[in-house]
Design a protein around this nucleic acid. Structure first.
Lengths: 128, 128
DNA sequence: AGTATATGTGCACACATATGCACACTTTGC
DNA sequence: GCAAAGTGTGCATATGTGTGCACATATACT
């Protein structure tokens, strides 16, 4: 009685494939480091800011903050602009929201499909 | 309508505070490792699965996979259930979707508020 | 009983990364 | 032109972590 073309399995495979594309390792790696999260929070609070000003409120050396900012920019979390001899960094809000939004779109079906150790009901799939 | 003295700055501070609460370092750390992402994708495709079966398709040792699964469970990404001498792991879909959804809720205003090097227009705020 | 299977953990090792110091480069001001 | 300020990078070091092997524990099978 079980339609073994397995539509559920097909949906699982599709999600697994999309997850691979949307789960940016570089993006998450940038968010792992607590110091980088502090930098992000500071930039959200203050807005565009140069390296020295950011580093002034933190215990790490200025060169360390500079490296973290480079990592954040590679991950698409911040953007930089040269202003004279200073370099201003700012949060890349639109890109971040887009990235997280894309992730949520892909994994959303998992809320019903990937319930731990709960068999998925295949008979009443289409019904609301 | 927000006609306070410093509406933008207040909103920035609020987001920075909420970001601290919602950005779970343990969650992102679990998603940094490519091997763990492979495990996640495998579990999404196959469903609940024991350690040996998961490890069979991967180049790493069983013990390594076991440790990765422990890390994923600590991060709330997977759940485990003992079944005889085996231990089955499964994706914790609802918790993952909730966590990402919470993050998106917090950072959503950043799409308009944290545009790099773009002054926020405070005069015409209410208009769509 | 004993044997086989499945899982997790202690240990050692290799690799990645965060950190601080010194230096080079760029730009501003005298 | 020269000094000062801001930034990024090479280098060495300390800490964290992924990996594999061996072993201990728990459960199933005969």
């Amino acid at each position: 009685m079980k339609n073994d073309n397995t539509p559920v399995n097909a949906e699982r495979l599709a999600i697994a494939q999309e997850v691979k594309a949307v789960l940016d390792t570089e993006f998450f790696t940038a968010l792992c480091e607590p110091v980088r999260v502090d930098i992000i929070r500071r930039l959200i609070s203050v807005g565009a800011c140069d390296v020295k000003t950011i580093a002034q409120g933190m215990s790490q050396d200025r060169s360390v903050i500079s490296r973290h900012l480079a990592t954040l920019e590679r991950a698409g979390i911040t953007a930089s602009r040269k202003s004279g001899r200073r370099v201003e960094y700012d949060i890349n809000g639109p890109d971040i929201v887009t990235k997280v939004s894309d992730i949520l779109k892909v994994i959303a079906p998992m809320a019903q499909l990937c319930v731990p150790f709960k068999a998925v009901d295949q008979s009443k799939e289409g019904v609301a």
